[in-house]
Nucleic acid binder design. Structure first.
Lengths: 182, 182
DNA sequence: AGCTTTTAGCTAACGTAGTTAGCCAAGCGC
DNA sequence: GCGCTTGGCTAACTACGTTAGCTAAAAGCT
């Protein structure tokens, strides 16, 4: 029996990809093992269990989202930066719904908190170009995060029932946030 | 063997209460049956399965949240109405985190969509006292919903790591929304 | 009241998923 | 070549959701 040559990063990456395909709820140890050409118990040589896998996928998603947002805001300020960040974030979540779903409902962790902090850094940079008193920066950051997180998760869960165009709604939302931050 | 006298409403109510206690993820058929003094398969006489139970709990939560918000905004308009609605909604979610978690990630349903529409009605009433063009009302509604939903779920999931006071953040968020809606 | 029908509870059993224990060979360092 | 580490395996167990089929409690009818 030749070895598959797996390691933790490979397993986590495959898990994230599989979550995007079949939905986070459909991500199962057996399915992931099959995808990797291995039997289920072999996965435990690389991850501690499903909870551990979820946390690692969530950390990966936060890192990737932070990278996407950070790259998108380069060279912009004010409303342009806010819009770029918002679109990049939403784009990431829609492109990787399974991965991002892992960040919801997972019990926070040392490594996960660190990844979350990095993700917030990109948004903090955006807020610096708004006239916000320093003592309110954390409040503004939480508000912006809530807004984008809420929109992305609602859309990913098909939470918007009625007819109005979702892309238009998102652009309107960016305008609202811009006004609210001044 | 005397009968327990259950019906669908009782089972759903007990499920919702249990979800608030042990968390939505910890809500299990066996635990619910035990709580009701009955064996697990007996639950299937009243609900079609776990998915059905989840949807019914979600609908209950949306109905209750709609009632709470609707009652809170009576007699208010503008920023006062927005603040009252926001605080009532957040208060409900924090008091019933398990129930509310059932509304996330559940595949929408005829009855559930109806309950969601009712919940949105209360927020729509708030927005009517803002100067928003009719064609933008749905966009504003989605934005406000995203904002409050995002904040409530992030806090419920312990998503706010760092130090700033969460109540203060929420009040700041209300101010931001008020400015953004004008 | 007595008889019939419905139905809410039960036990038994099955499928699926996560996990652990323990074995064995692949591949590495000497 | 030799031994150690380790990544794969099979077997087995637990927990949970679900279905089938039985029985007795309640409800309805005459």
């Amino acid at each position: 029996m030749p070895r598959a040559g797996l390691d933790t990063a490979t397993v986590v990456a495959a898990g994230a990809a599989l979550a995007d395909e079949v939905g986070f709820a459909g991500l199962t140890m057996g399915l992931l093992a099959e995808r990797l050409g291995v039997r289920t118990p072999s996965l435990y040589k690389h991850i501690a269990g499903q909870e551990d896998l979820n946390r690692r996928i969530a950390a990966l998603a936060l890192d990737e989202a932070a990278d996407a947002v950070g790259a998108a805001i380069q060279g912009y300020a004010g409303r342009d930066a806010l819009a770029a960040a918002a679109r990049a974030f939403r784009g990431y979540v829609l492109a990787h719904p399974g991965r991002y779903a892992a960040t919801i409902g997972v019990v926070p962790d040392e490594a996960l908190a660190e990844a979350g902090e990095r993700a917030l850094g990109s948004f903090r940079a955006v807020l610096r170009s708004y006239p916000i008193e320093p003592e309110n920066l954390d409040h503004a950051l939480r508000a912006v995060r809530s807004l984008f997180h809420g929109f992305a998760t609602l859309q990913a869960a098909n939470g918007f029932q009625w007819s109005a165009d979702v892309d238009q709604s998102f652009e309107w939302l960016i305008g609202m946030a811009d006004r609210g931050l001044r």
